[in-house]
């Protein structure tokens, strides 16, 4: 067993720890790992090139950018802001939880491309969350604003991850089935997917509670600021 290619992992860890450019770190790790495994330069380049083009699908997230750019220039974020500000009963926590639930359910039916960071979080969810947070605290500072947007992105991730595993035709479920099949254990995809249900439920509850706690902190901060302003 050749353990030298493991140095590639060490390069990744060290590179991220030293905050070097991640793109360079990742490619350097790949080159190092390939060379340490005894690959020649021509084989290594071909391996990099083939793997790279076969993963083009990961960049389709750039397709909504033209639409988002045009709409933002025409005031989409300002409108999202004004719309949320006008809805009294739609609080910060209700907005994010109302996104989390359907995102999980849709992903569990395999509909995971319909939402995402480019398609829904940047143009819609993040500005709406910001507006909902400003309803609580009109003097939201930059650090709080950043935490609000980050929580919106996190909510999309949690909804996606802990929904898609319930879908029986999802790659992860099929991977589990194929792995056990190779090792002589026959499993039905349904019998795998069903065990993801308790975690999906727990993920919803845990993240919803965190959203509610975040809102409570916003309310408390706003009250402190108001008290200080009165002094």
């Amino acid at each position: 067993m050749n353990y030298w290619p493991l140095l590639g992992i060490a390069i990744v860890v060290a590179g991220f720890a030293w905050r070097l450019n991640p793109a360079l770190v990742v490619v350097a790790a790949g080159v190092a790992s390939g060379l340490l495994a005894g690959l020649g330069i021509p084989e290594l380049l071909a391996l990099l090139g083939r793997a790279f083009v076969s993963n083009r699908v990961l960049l389709v997230l750039i397709l909504p950018l033209a639409t988002i750019g045009l709409l933002e220039r025409a005031g989409l974020r300002e409108r999202a802001h004004a719309w949320i500000a006008g809805l009294r009963q739609f609080t910060f926590a209700r907005l994010l939880i109302a996104y989390l639930g359907p995102r999980q359910i849709l992903s569990s039916f395999g509909l995971n491309t319909i939402a995402g960071h480019a398609q829904t979080v940047r143009p819609l969810l993040a500005p709406m969350a910001e507006a909902a947070a400003e309803k609580i605290d009109p003097d939201l500072d930059d650090a709080e604003r950043e935490r609000v947007k980050a929580l919106a992105a996190a909510t999309d991730n949690v909804g996606l991850f802990f929904g898609e595993d319930i879908f029986i035709a999802f790659g992860g479920v099929l991977l589990i089935q194929a792995f056990f099949n190779q090792h002589g254990i026959e499993l039905d995809p349904r019998s795998i997917a069903v065990w993801a249900l308790p975690t999906a439920f727990a993920a919803f509850v845990i993240h919803a509670i965190r959203i509610a706690l975040f809102q409570r902190r916003l309310v408390r901060n706003a009250a402190t600021k108001a008290a200080h302003a009165q002094d």
Binding site: L6, R56, L58
Partner: peptide
């Protein structure tokens, strides 16, 4: 934007060089 593709490429290199088996 490029990082997801580069990471998937790294995953393929790790698979081809036996990193998974070593771990």
């Amino acid at each position: 934007a490029l990082l997801p593709m580069l990471l998937a490429t790294l995953g393929a290199v790790f698979a081809a060089t036996g990193v998974g088996e070593a771990v």
